[in-house]
Design a protein around this nucleic acid. Structure first.
Lengths: 119, 119
DNA sequence: ATCGCACCTGGAGTGCACTCCAGGTCAACC
DNA sequence: GGTTGACCTGGAGTGCACTCCAGGTGCGAT
């Protein structure tokens, strides 16, 4: 049962310490354990959950939606069908994002080609 | 030499009227012509430029960078090499975005599969 | 013992990109 | 001639996601 100091979690997840505290404050991260001096000691699960948060955030999920997902996770296994629905919806949005980016990228590359052709 | 009313440009570009005014105010759009009553009449070029802006914005380019690009365009043809550099750099960022999204998407899909397997 | 350092709290501040609002003009239609 | 609707201006307000700050605690090294 390994525990992690704030600095280790910052290193591991890429979130700043302030962001970690912010996530705890708004409930995206459940109340993290403290040591005798009141300092945070993150559990393995905390770190794993932060990995999921990292992934959802980096794919553009708003915090409000992640918060709903967090609540489903906390509510227990009977919410798994709802979690699947939420992630499937998000997966569709990620696909749409990728398609859109690829489409726009074509425009940008055409523009570069055009500029090259007039040099 | 066709001209466009604000409503037509909103329709065509998907930008709100407020956004169009904002872009003009900050100089992302050059001073748009007015009719006798002081209402905007957008030129074909304005609409074309807004297409480029749409593309750059949707691929995550910050307004400050678009502003630099706009200045290069206004400065004349001798800035074409600089424009190419700017767009190539942006193209790299778009590629990185797509790669990152694709990577994260794998994680999400694995998670969905896992949830399906425990049902 | 005192220094530096990692950490704590509550709350204020920031940056970005809009978005909204109040009060007004003008042309067209009933 | 009155009302509607599209548009105008300058400036204030919003939402999101952090990020920073002041003032304080506890611990290990010099």
């Amino acid at each position: 049962m390994s525990v992690y100091t704030p600095a280790e979690v910052v290193e591991e997840t890429g979130f700043s310490l302030d962001t970690l505290r912010y996530y705890e404050k708004i409930g995206l991260l459940e109340r993290v354990d403290r040591n005798a001096a009141g300092q945070r000691r993150f559990s393995q699960e905390d770190v794993g959950w932060l990995g999921t948060v990292r992934c959802l955030r980096d794919t553009g999920m708003p915090i409000a939606t992640m918060l709903r997902f967090a609540e489903l996770v906390r509510a227990g296994d009977h919410t798994i069908p709802d979690r699947i629905k939420l992630l499937e919806e998000h997966d569709r949005q990620v696909r749409a994002q990728i398609d859109n980016l690829a489409e726009r990228q074509r425009y940008i590359r055409n523009k570069i080609s055009y500029y090259r052709s007039v040099l």
